[in-house]
Amino acid sequence: MRVVVARSIDAALAALASATEASRILAGGTDLCVEFESGRTRPDLVVEVGRVAELRFVRETQAGLEIGAGSTCADLLRSAPVARGADLLALAAREVGAVQIQNRATLGGNLVTASPAADLVPALFALGARVRLASLAGRRELLVEEFVTGYRATARRPDELVESVVIPPRPAGEHRAFHKVGTRRAQSISKVVVALALGPRGAGARIAAGSVAERTLRLATLEAALARGLARERLAQAVAHAVALDTRPRDDVRSTARYRRAVLERVLVRVLGPWLEPEGNAA
């Protein structure tokens, strides 16, 4: 196993040029070191990017809020621009582990690990985030849903580094919410996690859920129903329909598929209900 400690993006990209599918990038270490410990991962190459200062920033740009992939959860919690433009990300960051983990766990790491139980990823889905990747071959940008492709799988090529995430400007009048049901009140992995954004009269709905399938996903069926101007009275039925159609929860050591389905439905109804118009008022 080779280990390269990179202190710049250029150095990291140079090291990654020879990376294979088995290579790993080490940032905060809060996922990767656990994988080492459990023996799940035996990389041929580890590129350490934990202190690449260029990856750790938050800046407001014309395209929206750009957040460096090396930003830690603690950075997200302290950032005023994040609180303004990407509040869901701050709410999610608060739910990651506990303080010691928040001090190390990075935005890029949460994305690249792509755990179905990730806390930040659903928030990025709901925010409509785009992921910026770099390699010696060039740069590209993907929608976060395109980036996360499966169970702990992403569209990142072995030679690519996630540089940053771009959050589009917040549309006027958009409702947002984040809700996590975990195994306890801190230091917990989700049983169900929901992040959502909803424009006026159901426009531009982005409803994301974690721990209910092999990957974080959007409830497209529900989003479509909302876009059609779903009335409050019909919400429960539409949610049940969407959860049945769009999610694939499983029994595991943390919970059961039945519980996950039921709780996802109840949380969605609880959060969305107050935002919807009653029948008659609906568009």
């Binding site: 905060g28 270490g29 070191c33 010691q100 983990i101 001090n103 190390r104």
Partner: peptide, 8 residues
């Protein structure tokens, strides 16, 4: 504050 078990 960080965890020494997860720090390389």
């Amino acid at each position: 504050a960080v965890l020494a078990c997860l720090t390389a």
